[in-house]
Design a protein around this nucleic acid. Structure first.
Lengths: 347, 347
DNA sequence: TTGTAGGCGTTATCAT
DNA sequence: ATGATAACGCCTACAA
């Protein structure tokens, strides 16, 4: 004796029948609404009913449909994260921090790579807006005017990361690149460097690296040192660019006795190259990096650098978002992290 | 003179009015269906109409609602990617490869971190199933029975990566860890190493690393060498674990003259530590890594390692998925990449 | 504690 | 080339 098992008559072509809430309801002998409650707010349902429904859910292998849920509730469970690139360990770590905080809350993270391009960022924002994400987590404070408009009009919370040196659109979790650069500059001054160079991403492409340069330049100026020689690299950068930067400094500013690299990957490559060439670090050339990369403490001499903890930055960003979503009046619009200068052997 | 501008009467609390397709239709003087065509398949609409509609879209700042789209079309534009951790540059690179291929096709990538736990993986799969993704891209060939069931029943395409040493669930893009390990073993044999050690993630947690061990052990056996001393590390690993592994080998198997590390991060840390301690590489101790990490070529001696190109693996995985989605009968169920042994100074 | 009614914004299907 | 109608699967609001 057969009877119809599923309310939805049509099934996937070659696949299993599509089980919906009303299938479960029918199976359990309750209304669809009760099934909805069991899935979403089980505490509102009497225990006996709840168990009955849960058994039906298991028996039918019911899997809620997130799209239907989103449409009916006018809200998604997605956060959009846009970073320049996943190739850089600092951004990957930031994303990991975000996921670690959001995943337990049932929120998925979708990632966009802007490749350091404001136009790409704008396009990604436009596309991701269609998903009505709970929030955006962006890198830096600079965006195309249209991107800014889109975000504003959407009314969706935005957290900007990696930079607190100017006014955020909405929320921010980051640090002052200028202050961090200034600390490095002061260290170089204190250790007696006179001719300092800076190697990093181009100012137009990487406003954060530029901030570090500005801060360092300021410290040098305060100490009456000559302005830094600057090498601007095109993004994205590989470790090879560290060596290229080193070469350019050595050739075009041979008096240089200290280099501040905007990222540890560059600094480490340069430091290892110095070892190979017999350039003595820090006696002949002091080297300072940025990021406190995993191997920074292990090279010889160990790399002096700035620790920024991007994973924590990601978590703070996610926290700001969650607080806003929980409807709390913003306790703080902006979390300012404090990078830590770690002095080791190289400078 | 005012008139009602929006079909949807209710607006977001403090935000902009919610613009829907029928608002656009009204504004342009066409039916909603025509707007839908303009958005999705503009070639089906007469040019004059199309332009009129596109103007209305711009004028009203219309943004399609992906949830409604998914519900009506019974299909999403999401691919789910589950990796052990984003902290490891190889997995981050893989994800980047996937995104680079999918983003241009309008497909978003949601990421899950399993933390090397099959249970976590299963939970993530269950959650992400609610989004009805176009496909899953997983790491490795081992999954909990329930995870396997869930995937099978869903009928959703699955690509498994990083391992082709046993039978995949569905599609696969990876390489043979056993073969790669065997190559390393052969190299060590050829260079005259006699007492080889292996340092890597525990076999239970990391089946891929175990495959590399097995392959290497086989090569040693074939050459009549004694079995390798093995150090199994708990995941996740940091570079410090490379030093811990080195120490354990040096203490418990002092005759060791070569170590194969399952990841470059470990090998580099160990190599740098050897430099610091005055252990001569490769004369006293040969070191081989895995992954061809960015800095591998820059240390002294340069690290002998195996290049795997995880970004390409990610792209291949995405391609397999796209081919399947395009309805093509599977031309290949499995893409087997060929890792490349790169011999440098350390072994 | 549970059920009913209605609608969320789009696409599929069939007409015209 | 365009339109009308009916789902899609769930949640909100209200009623019982």
């Amino acid at each position: 004796m057969r009877r119809k098992r599923f309310a939805s008559s049509e099934n996937a072509p070659g696949g299993a029948p599509v089980v919906t809430m009303s299938d479960v309801a029918m199976h359990a002998g309750v209304s669809a609404q009760t099934v909805s409650r069991v899935v979403g707010r089980p505490e509102l349902v009497a225990e006996a009913t709840r168990i009955k429904v849960q058994e039906a859910i298991r028996a039918l292998n019911y899997i809620p449909n997130e799209a239907a849920r989103n449409l009916a509730s006018k809200s998604s469970r997605v956060v959009a994260v846009i970073i320049p690139t996943l190739s850089s360990s600092v951004f990957a770590a930031q994303v990991k921090g975000i996921i670690d905080l959001l995943e337990p809350r049932g929120i998925s993270v979708v990632i966009g790579n802007s490749e350091y391009s404001m136009l790409r960022e704008e396009q990604i924002i436009q596309t991701l807006l269609e998903r009505r994400p709970l929030g955006f987590i962006l890198t830096g404070l600079q965006h195309s005017p249209r991107a800014t408009d889109l975000l504003r009009q959407s009314g969706i919370p935005v957290v900007e990361t990696w930079d607190t040196d100017s006014r955020p659109l909405d929320l921010a979790a980051g640090f002052s690149n200028i202050a961090a650069g200034h600390e490095v500059g002061s260290l170089l001054v204190a250790r007696g460097s006179r001719n300092v160079a800076f190697v990093g991403g181009s100012a137009k492409q990487d406003a954060r690296a530029n901030g570090r340069f500005v801060g360092m330049a300021q410290a040098l100026a305060e100490a009456g040192l000559p302005p830094a020689f600057r090498v601007e690299l095109l993004l994205p950068m590989s470790s090879q660019d560290g060596i290229r930067g080193l070469d350019e400094v050595l050739q075009r500013a041979p008096m240089t006795d200290a280099i501040f690299f905007s990222a540890d990957m560059l600094a480490l490559a340069a430091l290892l190259e110095c070892n190979r060439r017999g350039v003595r670090v820090p006696e002949q050339l002091a080297i300072c990096g940025f990021g406190d990369y995993d191997l920074a403490a292990l090279v010889t001499p160990a790399l002096t650098t700035v620790k920024i903890q991007p994973d924590e930055m990601g978590m703070k960003a996610a926290e700001l978002l969650l607080a806003r979503l929980d409807g709390a009046p913003d306790r703080q619009k902006s979390v300012v992290l404090r990078p830590q200068l770690i002095r080791r052997g190289s400078a």
